[in-house]
Nucleic acid binder design. Sequence first.
DNA 1: GGCGCGATGTAAAAGTTCTTCACATGGAGT
DNA 2: ACTCCATGTGAAGAACTTTTACATCGCGCC
Lengths: 215, 215
Amino acid sequence: MTWGKHGHGPRGYHHGNLKEALVRAALELIAEKGPAGFTFADAARWAGVSPAAPYRHYRDRDALLADVAKRGFDEFAAALANAWNDGRPDPMSAFDRMGKAYLAFARTEPAYYSAMFEAGVPVDSDPELRDAGERAFGILRGAAERLVALMPAQGRPPALMVALHIWSMTHGIASLFGRGDAARRALPMAPEELLEAAVLVYLRGLGLPEGTTTG
Amino acid sequence: MTWGKHGHGPRGYHHGNLKEALVRAALELIAEKGPAGFTFADAARWAGVSPAAPYRHYRDRDALLADVAKRGFDEFAAALANAWNDGRPDPMSAFDRMGKAYLAFARTEPAYYSAMFEAGVPVDSDPELRDAGERAFGILRGAAERLVALMPAQGRPPALMVALHIWSMTHGIASLFGRGDAARRALPMAPEELLEAAVLVYLRGLGLPEGTTTG
DNA sequence: GGCGCGATGTAAAAGTTCTTCACATGGAGT
DNA sequence: ACTCCATGTGAAGAACTTTTACATCGCGCC
């Protein structure tokens, strides 16, 4: 089982790490041709095994896709948490950093992002998938709570609503313009700029004290 | 051979209106199982013709999907224009109505919406498709211009940016929560409420004069 | 050290779908 | 009425899916 993880070339009768190889194959193929653009047999071929082998690890293609989505949410949550860094040095700059990390994830991991949000994977198909998604959103929600706490106690908006608004805006930008993809529209500015401006306007609309940004 | 499976009368050897029937078939099947969940052969079967017949009208499945997307943008633009109604009786209430129309379109025409935004159809594959998309966005952009014009001349934000922000937010909500779909997340409120709140906060952040809403 | 068992992978086969090909049909225009 | 040609059919080869019986290997157990 210690033999090479890097998927290419014959390894003997047993692959040794086929499940991981299938996930990587799915990511490669999704990045190439979209979530609908690969088959179970493609993934098997990419991993160098027979078309029947994947069935030992996943019930069907959708199960593989769901696993990819789950892993994506895990990495996504880690990336967001890392960028947020518990609100240091201050919530506003940390929040801005997290927004950029969101867009960066969508751009650098389009395959994960597609599997997570655009592949039509039913979130309830797997409790682990749902939990992973909830954990990722939890990072954003925690950050929104910290932001809302900066505001005077009266007139504070619900943190959940703020989190949903920011999530929707960020996902909207990532989904419409976030990737160089031929399926996306061109934009007269960087998605990051568009998002930063939107968040600044939105937070101003919430009455968040000015002067807390770091520029 | 089994003519008229779906009550679309038997025509004899020639169907008579196969192209339209294929589009309707695609919409039915997308609504049922997602943009990836139908095949060219499925559409043919649904229309009651042989699997080879669709090739007379579309080069492949993607071409059919692109046509569905184009028609979707046309209907979408019409729905938005109708809701906007040239900004009557006042831009704010018309804008709010247009946002609701956007979400309503995503909910009542999920098949069109999927084909337009989530099926991975390359927008440049067909100039007509791109133009149809641009026309739809043009409605939103025109509305944003009217809204921006309500603001004092100094400090007016670029209307294009406002349009992109609103589009992103609305698409984000529609995409994440807009349909009862099992692939979407549940929400503690109606998407329309979430959107209306977001737009109000955003416009307040732009400094749009209060008291112009119709409540 | 050897045995056997469970996990993992293969080969083959049946059923379905994709796509193209030659051919059939019938409506439109002369 | 005849011819053209857009439109639809059937058949065929290739690919994908999924199952089943079989092969191989790692690992625990004596």
